[in-house]
Simulated assay, not measured.
Amino acid sequence: MTTTPRSPHLLVLSTVILAVVGGVALLGVPHRHKQRAPATATAAHAATDPSPAAAPPAGRPTVSRPPYPASAASGASTPSALESPLPPHGDGVAGDRAIQHLLEMAWPADLPADDERELLIAGRAVLRADATGVGRAKWPSVFPASNQAVAPAFATARFRIQAAIARRDGSPDKAVVHLVWAGMDRGGTFTDLRISDWHFTRTTSKKGAATWTPQPHT
Results as ranks from 00 to 15, higher is better:
146 S>E: 15
171 S>M: 09
13 L>W: 01
26 L>G: 06
44 A>F: 06
196 S>L: 01
167 R>F: 03
1 M>S: 11
56 P>R: 12
51 S>D: 11
28 G>K: 04
95 G>P: 00
167 R>G: 03
8 P>I: 13
92 G>I: 02
19 A>H: 00
168 R>T: 02
96 D>T: 08
190 F>W: 09
101 H>A: 15
123 G>L: 02
90 G>A: 07
86 L>N: 05
70 A>I: 09
207 K>R: 14
175 A>C: 07
117 R>G: 00
45 H>M: 13
43 A>T: 09
72 A>E: 15
43 A>V: 10
213 T>P: 01
102 L>V: 09
24 V>R: 03
58 A>K: 07
133 G>E: 05
34 K>D: 15
138 K>L: 13
15 T>Q: 11
122 A>V: 02
77 S>Y: 08
90 G>M: 07
38 P>F: 02
56 P>F: 01
20 V>P: 00
173 D>Q: 11
99 I>K: 04
162 Q>E: 15
1 M>L: 14
207 K>T: 12
94 A>P: 01
154 F>H: 05
113 A>E: 12
44 A>C: 03
61 P>A: 11
77 S>W: 07
144 P>H: 09
83 E>R: 15
164 A>C: 08
58 A>P: 05
186 R>A: 14
110 D>S: 11
138 K>A: 15
122 A>R: 03
167 R>Q: 07
100 Q>D: 13
50 P>E: 06
161 I>F: 07
25 A>P: 00
28 G>L: 08
160 R>S: 06
21 V>P: 01
133 G>F: 03
156 T>V: 09
194 R>N: 15
44 A>D: 15
5 P>S: 14
93 V>E: 15
7 S>D: 12
85 P>T: 12
19 A>C: 05
114 D>S: 10
196 S>C: 11
58 A>R: 13
91 D>W: 06
111 L>W: 06
108 P>Y: 01
172 P>T: 02
199 H>D: 05
45 H>F: 08
57 P>T: 01
44 A>M: 10
82 L>G: 01
41 A>H: 04
67 P>M: 12
181 W>D: 04
137 A>Y: 06
147 N>Q: 10
165 I>V: 14
93 V>C: 05
43 A>I: 09
152 P>C: 06
80 S>E: 10
59 G>C: 04
27 L>M: 12
197 D>G: 08
59 G>A: 04
95 G>Y: 04
150 V>G: 02
177 V>N: 02
33 H>R: 05
212 W>L: 07
40 T>Y: 03
52 P>H: 11
217 H>P: 00
187 G>D: 12
170 G>W: 09
194 R>I: 02
60 R>C: 01
63 V>I: 14
35 Q>D: 15
95 G>K: 01
22 G>A: 14
170 G>N: 08
106 A>P: 00
191 T>H: 03
209 A>T: 14
13 L>S: 04
10 L>E: 10
72 A>S: 10
137 A>L: 08
17 I>T: 14
80 S>K: 09
64 S>M: 07
132 T>A: 08
159 F>Y: 11
3 T>N: 10
195 I>H: 03
216 P>E: 02
135 G>A: 07
